[in-house]
Design a protein around this nucleic acid. Structure first.
Lengths: 150, 150
DNA sequence: CTAGAAGCTAGAGTCATGTCTAGATCAATG
DNA sequence: CATTGATCTAGACATGACTCTAGCTTCTAG
């Protein structure tokens, strides 16, 4: 079952532009074939790959890394070790991302509130006690207040 | 305790360029003050904010969104509802990211192997049975093979 | 007083990841 | 046969988030 670039675009969710771009970037395992009139022909396996590809992309794998991987695939059997290592590295990367995101959630829950209190108190402080700044310089090099100054 | 831009850069992990850039982009709650000689003065609370900021960034919050948030903070109390909503939206975004990353891990575990099998079989197929392609056109418009052709 | 480090501004450059345009070809249709 | 729509190529443009440069000032140490 042959597929045109338009069909692949529709089914993969990528634009035809992106598909041509991916091809230029060498992201297809099998170089995309052409009809005698120059038009690209895709097959189901390309869609499968694009689905994986999109998933990897959305997890933050760069096109450069995906290309590295697909280059190994293109070289054929024998380098499974390297492929695995590459994927493992990304897997670790993904795990780290997840951990960091979890932490960000905590930050958002706690720290942001605390920070807002800081700001609120800071504002109040400045409103009521504008003399708490000068520390580095005696007199002429004090900070010039911006909005409150004039 | 006043801090120069260099000190803040060192302690925040951001470059001095980035700090000036962030300022231009309006990412500081309190506009950065200057000494009479024009140099920026930062304080501990700026470092705290930058820490949060960096966390939000690393979780994929865009500078634009961070700016929206900090603008609400700048407007002072009264819009806590909006701030919360903004953070909640990002929180959901982060959750979605985590879910997607988990799924990506599964994909990497399973699908990639399967895909590689496909490719392997596909290659073998083509090597041993080069007649399985022509489907759309009778004869003159068959695909022109690329590497194997010549 | 002078050299070197650190700051300043405005604006140009970079990188990744696409998106869009122009101008041409080709296929199907009224 | 003319139009419409899908495709092609090469290359320009866009965006986000920085990064770097040029040219100048200012601080600090010797």
């Amino acid at each position: 079952m042959d597929l045109s670039i338009g069909e692949v675009a529709e089914r993969s969710g990528l634009s035809v532009h992106a598909l041509r771009f991916y091809e230029r970037e060498g992201l297809f395992a099998n170089p995309v074939r052409r009809l005698s009139n120059g038009r690209r022909v895709y097959h189901e396996e390309d869609l499968e790959w694009l689905a994986i590809c999109t998933k990897l992309r959305s997890s933050g794998m760069s096109l450069a890394l995906i290309r590295q991987y697909i280059e190994l695939v293109r070289q054929g059997p024998g380098n499974e070790q390297e492929r695995l290592e590459l994927l493992r590295r990304h897997e670790n990367h993904v795990r780290a991302q997840i951990a960091e995101l979890q932490e960000t959630l905590n930050v958002m829950r706690n720290k942001v509130r605390i920070y807002e209190d800081h700001v609120a108190r800071g504002e109040a402080d400045r409103l009521w006690n504008p003399t708490h700044r000068p520390t580095t310089e005696p007199a002429p090099d004090q900070e010039c207040p911006r909005s409150e100054g004039a």
